[in-house]
Amino acid sequence: MDSEVILDVRNLETIYVIGKERIIRAVDNVSFSVHRGEILGVAGESGCGKSTLAYSLLKLVPPPGIIKGGEINYYGWGNKVNILDLPENMLQRYRWKEVAMVFQAAQSALNPVMKIMGHFLDTGLAHGLTKREIYERARILLKQVRLNENVLDMYPHQLSGGMKQRVIIALALLLSPKVLILDEPTSALDLLTQKNILDLIKEINRKLNLTMIFITHDLSLLAEIATKVMIMYAGKIVEMSPVEDIFYNPRHPYTIGLIKAIPSLTGDISTVKSIPGEVPDLSNPPHGCRFAPRCPYASKICREVEPELENIGDGRYVACHKWEDI
């Protein structure tokens, strides 16, 4: 793997302001970097802040969300540029051209009365491509996602779920981005189609050396596709490590609990069990470590001091006071 950093996120804070009293800290003091060519998998339960993190990376957080602090440093232009400082016209050159995204539930966002070609034209023309260029690229991209080019002349409802998802991936690649964020790209698809899309994503990653951030609530998927895995819990990164370490040698009690809570087809079924307690309310998270109320290893310090995401060597990061004892 190329070790060159392409995105470096420092102390990112994104909140949703709901009335005077309620602030939801959806992404809370998050730091990590993404390296060129890798597939960073992001997993965590519903509501932990995965999509908010993705939106933040494009500076596209929908209201009432705001990015309250931190830096998103992009290195794709050669030198370091903090995206959060960019004026709107420069952001236009960053979004889709540098970092593109396949949104969660994007299939339903396809315009039902517009043919697929129209979707390519819309995106391309808005970014200064000519019709001819758009047509040429669209044909190449459809081939890449293994679709026949006659799809261009079809309406979305004429395509299956898997075909639509492939069209959306092709659309996201129209402006040749260096980083592609995929937010739950397979969750609306059946298992067989999901497998097909995963293979496709891996192939694109390899052939184009495209950097990818793959977001999912299904941790098992990441065993297949990711090179590095980030586990989020209640707005925070709790662990981030190479994929083998996450599955074979997890260090954070939440990662351990999550893996044990998912019955698989291969593992021992008799040891499967839920994590006790409930996911915290992000407008009023617990003091200290957010996982402490549910953690079997928690002690006094855990309930008082918030653990930092610590570099424990070999590309592994853990936010837990007790990681050495686990």
């Binding site: 299956s160 067989l192 497998k195 098992s220 065993a223 074979y248 698989s264 087809l265 593992g267």
Partner: peptide
């Protein structure tokens, strides 16, 4: 057989080694 061959498994080595059964068509 096909269905079970594509269920994601939480094991990176196994996940990358195993062969999915290829269908003649993906369309349901």
């Amino acid at each position: 057989k096909t269905l079970l061959s594509v269920v994601p498994v939480p094991d990176p080595k196994l996940a990358r080694e195993r062969k999915a059964i290829q269908l003649r068509s993906l369309d349901v």
